[in-house]
């Protein structure tokens, strides 16, 4: 079973739930930016949740199928067409050999997830099919899809059948967008005034927002608590002796533009970090378009854990409804 890429879209990569275990060597977990959407797309076609599918950002690909299969699209709102006939997102639908899957213009969100019954069957690298282009690892020859690529797909499983998700089960996106932050790491490097200002100011998603990190701008520059820089750190007040980075951690090089590290994060470096986005809000970042206004909101560990539990329960309800 295969499909052929007619048009790749802007940046379409094979992703799954990633390859944890190699971050200590600078190889990130990777996998879908919006993991819940990837899981749900797989549930809709009866796949294991960690099966490989496609992640496409802003513009959908155009694919022709060499065999009959079952497809589902989840994540961002983007019209889906099979040979020109519209199909619903968040549901699975059959596609016949010779038919073409196409997408309209993006309405809301940033990334769609396309699951195929049986899952994409490229060779796994370090236990995952997720594409990590910087290391030319995983996915299709370690890179984003290009026109003419013929992508192998497994055989549909016994659980492959048409399903539809009741959208009321999905979390509503907060408006305006709020990203919850647990302060920590090198938070003490900021003056009290800058600590307050970080949460008071409105930030906007910058054009430099990708799988490695999301950059924000628009807030006032940060001020640092004065000190003699420690030996080995470098002379800028935002420099530290190179250390590990957390997924979701927020670095502010030069004190100007915060960068939230995401699934393809660099594993370490020499910039201070002010804390991290809580795990429950990481998927949401993957659906933010450039120029979206965002507020960072300060939370404590208890709030982070209850948000995590809420998210897990919601996914469990969806799982029960679809499987």
């Amino acid at each position: 079973m295969t499909f052929e890429v007619v048009k790749p879209g802007l940046l379409t990569t094979i992703q799954d739930l990633g390859r944890p275990g190699y971050f200590h060597l600078g190889i990130p977990e990777g996998g879908a930016m919006d993991r819940a959407a990837m899981r749900i797309a797989n549930m809709l076609v009866g796949n294991p949740e960690d099966a490989a599918g496609l992640e496409a950002v802003f513009i959908g690909p155009e694919l022709t199928f060499q065999h009959d299969t079952l497809v589902a699209v989840a994540g961002a709102e983007m019209p889906v067409f099979v040979d020109g006939e519209e199909r619903a997102c968040w549901s699975s639908f059959p596609v016949k050999a010779g038919q073409t899957l196409k997408f309209g213009y993006l309405k809301t969100g940033a990334r769609i997830y396309i699951a195929f019954a049986g899952g994409i069957d490229t060779p796994p690298a370090l236990g995952s099919r997720a594409t990590y282009p910087i290391g030319a690892l995983g996915g299709f020859e370690g890179r984003a899809l290009a026109a003419g690529d013929v992508v192998p797909v497994g055989k549909p499983g016994a659980k492959a059948r048409e399903r539809t998700l009741d959208r009321a089960m999905l979390a509503e996106l907060p408006k305006p967008v709020e990203l919850r932050v647990l302060p920590g790491l090198y938070w003490h490097r900021l003056t009290e005034k800058s600590q307050e200002q970080f949460f008071d100011d409105e930030w906007k998603v910058a054009p430099e927002a990708d799988r490695m990190g999301y950059r924000f701008r628009g807030g006032r520059p940060m001020e640092f608590v004065e000190r003699d820089q420690p030996f080995g750190a470098g002379s800028d007040p935002s420099n530290i002796v190179d250390g590990c980075y957390s997924y979701g951690s927020i670095q502010i090089p030069g004190g100007t533009e915060p960068i939230v590290l995401h699934r393809d994060a660099v594993s370490g470096g020499g910039y201070f970090t002010v804390g991290a986005i809580i795990s429950a809000d990481m998927d949401l970042i993957g659906q933010l378009q450039p120029n979206t206004a965002v507020h960072f909101r300060r939370v404590d560990m208890d709030t982070a854990l209850s948000a995590r539990a809420e998210r897990r329960d919601r996914l469990e309800k969806i799982r029960s409804a679809l499987t």
Binding site: L182, G184, P230, F231, A233, G248, S249, T273
Partner: peptide, 19 residues
Amino acid sequence: YSYGGDEHIFVEMDEEMSL
């Protein structure tokens, strides 16, 4: 010691580099 979000704990031995 510091939490890095709800999934990480960061432990710094020293601000300075040394063996």
